[in-house]
Design a protein around this nucleic acid. Structure first.
Lengths: 208, 208
DNA sequence: GAACCATGTTGACACCGCCAACACGCCTCA
DNA sequence: TGAGGCGTGTTGGCGGTGTCAACATGGTTC
């Protein structure tokens, strides 16, 4: 057998870190980030209450690891959406496809999305934000390509120098839209917005 | 003396509910909503650890009361911004003024703003969302007036029937912008966006 | 075989939300 | 006038939490 065999002894778990992250992601959607406890995860993994501290310095860094996994999956979903774009039957702009993919991700894992964008994250070590940054730059490039495309022949800006203010604006729009939806902020007694349509009409910022 | 006199005895506090809310709002900005505890607030008010439960059924309802006060102040700030609009020297559209006032409010009380827009709030009793709803409708009216104004003479829509999808889109934009800023989500090593400018360029949704 | 080290365990501490039972003091009404 | 009701405060306790110090286990390395 060539695959790495789990340890033979019962004293050492063997894959505790991975199991905690897997169970953490599950628990996140089941009960939310507020009530998620390392102790209960440890117990569920059949391990003592302080065992997780051998793998994560504190709870915040554990949440950071969960968010990191979320960033990775989000980036995966976003790149898939732009690559699959040309194959779509209905012609859909890459920006719109990306907006919809972004919302689909957040709706499928609301608690994880919230965690990924919580104020906690700006206090995380740098290795936890690599995928987040990549996703933002992917959005910037997609916006830039869209702008260059629509302004073809009439003095389009140079590519390679994305307008970061416009990127921030587009991100803000889709981020806010997603949060209003998954946090249930829109008044329940008003007719519900057409979330999917709105996710596709990411606004273009008027230039400076 | 005609004003309501505080109780003479020391056993009963007299204005505990108000003092808890006041101290709660202070503590919110000092330490964030996560670590805010009813016990510590009670101790700071010179009262036993369970006294707050005479005024708030549980912690969530206390946070709801804090958020309610926040909604009231936000609505106050927004109405002030549209009323003060015409008096401004620099001609600024009411929508832009409102966007900037919205961001100024959130930046001045980030933790309160987060609380007001947390998923907790959609589980609150109806009396806690009156001001929130009023603020949203104020935004809808301001947007509608702006659209009617800019489309004057060329088939403007009837007033009184605000486009709620457009309202949701504008709200999403400014909400997301504010959160990205106060949560520190924008990568620190990229040039910081011009938040105030962005808060003033609330996008118009392309019609259905 | 001894020393090392990663990864488990146990026990404890301080803190938290919350509950039941009780204490105080004002207000009302017989 | 005095007895009861009631709003509001207190005490003590329960179960849960993050986290720390000290110790145990077992594979790896000289």
């Amino acid at each position: 057998m060539s695959e790495p065999e789990p340890r033979k002894d019962t004293y050492h778990h063997g894959h505790l870190r991975e199991e905690l992250i897997r169970r953490g992601l599950e628990a996140l959607e089941r009960e939310g980030a507020e009530t998620l406890s390392l102790r209960s995860l440890a117990e569920a993994a059949g391990v003592s209450k302080t065992a997780p501290y051998r793998h994560f310095k504190d709870k915040d860094l554990f949440l950071g690891a969960l968010a990191d996994e979320g960033y990775r999956r989000l980036h995966e979903a976003l790149t898939a959406s732009v690559e699959a774009g040309p194959k779509r039957r209905r012609a859909e702009s890459p920006v719109a496809a990306m907006g919809r993919a972004y919302m689909a991700f957040a709706v499928s894992r609301p608690a994880l999305y919230r965690l990924m964008n919580s104020p906690l994250m700006c206090r995380m070590p740098a290795e936890f934000i690599g995928w987040a940054r990549k996703s933002l730059l992917l959005l910037a490039e997609t916006l830039e390509a869209s702008r260059a495309d629509s302004a073809k022949g009439r003095g389009a800006r140079r590519a390679g120098h994305p307008d970061l203010d416009a990127t921030a604006a587009a991100w803000a729009y889709i981020h806010g839209l997603v949060l209003i939806r998954i946090d249930g902020l829109y008044p329940a007694d008003l007719p519900e917005p057409d979330w999917d349509r709105l996710a596709g009409v990411v606004p273009e910022l008027p230039g400076r």
